[in-house]
Amino acid sequence: MKVPVNKIIPFSAVDGPGNRTAVFVQGCNFNCRYCHNPETRNLCKNCGECVEKCPKHALYVENGEVRFRPELCCGCDTCIKTCRFGCSPRIQYLDAGEVFERIKKQMPYIRGITVSGGECTLYPDFLRELFVLCREAHLGTLLDSNGTLDFEAYPELLDVTDGVMLDVKAWTDEDHHTVTSVSNEMVLKNMRYLASQGKLFEVRTVIVPELFDCRGTVRETATLAAQYLDKGNIRYKIIKYRPMGVREEYAHYRVPDQAFLEELAELARSCGMTDVLIV
């Protein structure tokens, strides 16, 4: 099964413990206002507009579909700025074996991989295949998720997954709708389930004070996660909203100040979390 891969970062210091190769797949079922990779959400509609704008001729059309030649691309981002549909044409369709070949090049410098997106759980079979290959090579396997895949229904995937880094974007369903346009029922179910299985590596919340009840979200999330700490450590990452990369119409939110972030971190600790990080 081939999936649309947006990019592979050989060495990443910010996608889990130690040095990891980070794989970003294309496509997401949320529409977070503060998404700073909005071009990773949709699949290309092959309208062709970006092809003409590319200064390096790295894009071309074949059989009505846009294709990408990575070796010519200079990374100028003209294409994604051009696109009206929230896509990137810089996509390569790769199967698990092909992605693994690109991961192998970093061994033994990495301790594992992290698959992110977009939303990687849109492709659960791909993830399972890839993680099986990684496990055989003694590489760690983490995934980054918005929590809409019902993990309980995919035990084989969870078997080969070391842990999930789960976004809890807002606690109340109403707030969650405001932030993402989607309900969070499944997210919270997953949080409980993953934590009970010792597979919840990290929960994270992006702090945008104007958009949702941040205090309430941190309090409730921390309280729930703390009940499961005996199953394994869970880190709570409190992420400062930054306008970088965010779509123009949503880039007006105020950046929270350090004092507020510290307050939230303290709140999480007071609810029983021990490993709390502000980034």
Partner: peptide
């Protein structure tokens, strides 16, 4: 992430 450098 100092473990990043340790892995390297």
């Amino acid at each position: 992430n100092n473990e990043f450098l340790l892995d390297i």
